[in-house]
Design a protein around this nucleic acid. Structure first.
Lengths: 216, 216
DNA sequence: GCCCAATTTTTGGTATACCATTCCCCTCGG
DNA sequence: CCGAGGGGAATGGTATACCAAAAATTGGGC
């Protein structure tokens, strides 16, 4: 792997900080201020800001400091609608193109989640959840789809993380994941599509609940 | 409208040049060279290059000049697969959420294409074709979907333009568009989905033909 | 005549300085 | 006491200078 540029590195650090909530939504992220805070010059910081803006984590305003994005329920639902379509597509393609090794990887991720659920490691559980879905898009054999899906997923990382915290339904998540894995192993596109669709619909409902709770 | 920044402006100029083929695929686009050629400093040029790279028109290589992208047939097909899923989704949503005015706009674009076909204005015809599809995604009521779809469409602008040049089947395009418009007006999601799917499948076939011809 | 290595050149990456615009606060006038 | 105007501070946008690394070229050795 080639050495990561400084701009990418601070972009990663910033992204981490945003996703973990260390930088609150709505707070401003000036070029100078943050550049000094992280000990770099404005140039790479400026580029890092553009990167995160393209990812949707920062909002650029003309002649004004960028702010940490604070997406509305409507926006999140819109994105999730797209993710749903892409994941269904991924499942369809994966049933055709996935190698056995890829499906094996997906099953391994699933079983890893089961263990993490038993141990109660919520953060790891959640991150593996993301990996699980990413692995499916990777198994589609469509690299551009994998990339795009990953971007959208990253964008919703925080809100999904927050809404998954309450996680009254880890069992349902695991059960649905299990069915999706079975569907992939049987190359049963219909089953995969159905379960994927239902799965994301539940996620959507969770997020709606999260927003409702937050506004109170 | 707020004044566009210099970086955006030269990004637009560069994009135009690339899409029109004034910059051949594979040719290198160094920061210094192009900055001087366009009479700006490296900083905005650098940013413009990043923008176009994110759009997929330029390929960044570590420690090497960026080059104008020259997508393979596989890559184009992958992207088109995604576009197909997104357009089908757009059609579904548009049948539910589109306003009558939006559908009216779509019909107007369609009829405009008919006129342009009669006049033989290929470039305008093609651009209106793009607008037609964009208008449908706009009618979905999902702004993020509209944005994403637009980006993917832009990325394939050039190859679609080239493959549409031969255009032995303008009649089929217009017929399918007409059916899609009818479907939208009737809010018949099934019809829209079917025709959209078939429409893009034909585009895919055209592009395959274009690549086959090019390689000979 | 060919290949390898050292050097030179060119590349992107980074830091810094400067500018125009805008925003904010303070003061002055009603 | 309130509002409008002005000045200063802070912002992002741009230009430029410098650096390290990598690629290309050239010269020497085999």
């Amino acid at each position: 792997m080639t050495a990561p540029t400084l701009a990418e590195e601070i972009a990663n650090r910033l992204r981490h900080a945003i996703l973990l909530g260390e930088l609150e939504p709505g707070s401003s992220v000036g070029e100078r201020e943050n550049a000094q805070r992280m000990g770099v010059s404005r140039t790479p910081m400026r580029e890092a800001i553009r990167i995160l803006a393209k990812e949707g984590l920062l909002i650029l305003r003309p002649s004004l400091s960028p702010v940490v994005a604070d997406p509305s329920l409507q926006q999140v639902e819109d994105e999730l609608t797209i993710i749903r379509a892409l994941e269904v597509l991924s499942g369809d393609l994966a049933c055709i193109h996935a190698t056995d090794a890829q499906i094996e990887t997906i099953r391994a991720l699933h079983e890893h989640m089961v263990r993490l659920a038993e141990e109660g490691d919520m953060l790891r559980f959640f991150e593996t959840d993301m990996d699980f879905h990413r692995a499916i898009s990777a198994a589609s054999g469509n690299s551009r789809l994998e990339e795009l899906h990953g971007q959208l997923l990253a964008r919703l990382w925080r809100v999904r993380f927050l809404s998954a915290r309450q996680a009254w339904d880890r069992d349902r998540v695991l059960k649905q994941h299990g069915l999706i894995v079975s569907g992939l192993e049987a190359r049963d596109a219909t089953l995969v599509r159905l379960e994927t669709d239902s799965h994301i619909e539940h996620i959507q409902r969770n997020i709606q609940g999260h927003f409702r709770q937050e506004s109170s």
